[in-house]
Design a protein around this nucleic acid. Structure first.
Lengths: 204, 204
DNA sequence: AAATATACTGAACAGTGTTTAGTAAAGTCA
DNA sequence: TGACTTTACTAAACACTGTTCAGTATATTT
């Protein structure tokens, strides 16, 4: 009979309803200002109902965290059209910062905040999203080395270094730690820094 | 008369009492778990009293943020004994990570969290602590270049790049984003990555 | 039609940062 | 010394927060 299937569908619809409301509020207002009560208000259900579909607030935000990675993966895929792997690496690296600037709240959830990552630490889950993006980077780095475009070194070390650099610059900017520079200076310096840094990895 | 002086002294003592209690709790439990009410409980005063000495929670944590920088400055000074500027840069860079690992809560306040930096954004204050540490780094980089130990480049760009790299690695580690590696692997890769990265800046 | 299962909620628990009105002690001045 | 003022402090409240649980109304099954 189709009743249980409809019920399953309705359950999923309700989850989506909650998640969409939560996502919209989160992107607008951030994590702290998106309360369970406000989400419940928005979808016109009681706060208790939300707990029938999500274990706790962290689980909701882990789901949003995943949506952020989906957005990021879609952006990453657009680099595939670039022939030269090193140019592709440069483009990917630029995209990373663009993504963070355009989706600061997502970036927060994905790479800075503890909340969503603790949801899976508790559940003994892997950080699949992160692994996927990281493997994309590693494969690209390997390709660069194989084609003799990049200095030979341990791929893990190179990936860790480049990601660290990119994340550091991004998160310092997002979290307002470049107060020693004006907004225009920051923009200019970040671009120059990225160009210089990746050039250090180029085989000459 | 000395009454107003005693009053001033007592006021400062009370501020210190609050700050010391807050700092101890913060280092033990972190920002979120250190509530105004718990601080008040610890020092055996009412929560409202704390608001006679600090504008809000952010102001307390900005004061702790400053204490963190004092700790960091003291550590930075220990590098002065190293003759070779580039070796000094390497040591400073290692110290940065050591500090973050040994004082993760302080590091949080200093370089990741919004709370303390927003306290001064609202008061139109400079981020003096940050400027000071950054100038130390820039002066050191300039010295390295002047002595022909480091590749010639814009000092601002070099400083921004090195700090970004260091902060990125540190904060990804602290915020549990290196789940693709075991603890031992992370330690090893971070060391290798730091060595490799700074070596890229070395003039050969 | 009766019994069971599902979906949902009101109200409460235990906490948060912050404000305000009121009190008791300390200091000032005639 | 007594009256007035300032200072230091607090109880209680406001407006929130995440989360739980007993109870209810509806839907499904027997």
């Amino acid at each position: 009979m189709g009743i249980s299937e409809r019920k399953e569908r309705e359950k999923q619809e309700m989850r989506d309803l909650i998640l969409n409301a939560a996502t919209a509020m989160f992107i607008e207002e951030g994590y702290d200002k998106t309360s369970i009560r406000k989400i419940a208000d928005k979808i016109e259900y009681s706060p208790a109902t939300i707990y029938l579909y999500f274990k706790d607030k962290d689980e909701i935000f882990h789901a949003i965290h995943d949506k952020g990675f989906d957005k990021f993966f879609a952006l990453m895929e657009t680099t595939r059209s670039i022939e030269n792997p090193f140019d592709r690496l440069i483009r990917l690296s630029d995209l990373y910062i663009d993504f963070a600037y355009e989706n600061p709240e997502y970036y927060d959830l994905m790479f800075i905040m503890m909340a969503p990552i603790e949801a899976l630490t508790h559940n003994n889950e892997d950080w699949t999203c992160g692994f996927q993006a990281y493997n994309f980077l590693k494969a690209l780095i390997k390709e660069c080395m194989d084609e003799g475009l990049m200095k030979e070194m341990d791929v893990e070390v190179a990936a860790l270094s480049i990601w660290s650099f990119k994340h550091g610059m991004t998160s310092l900017a997002i979290r307002n730690r470049f107060k020693m520079y004006s907004e225009a200076e920051v923009k200019k310096l970040m671009k120059e820094s990225c160009d210089m840094m990746l050039d250090l990895f180029r085989k000459k």
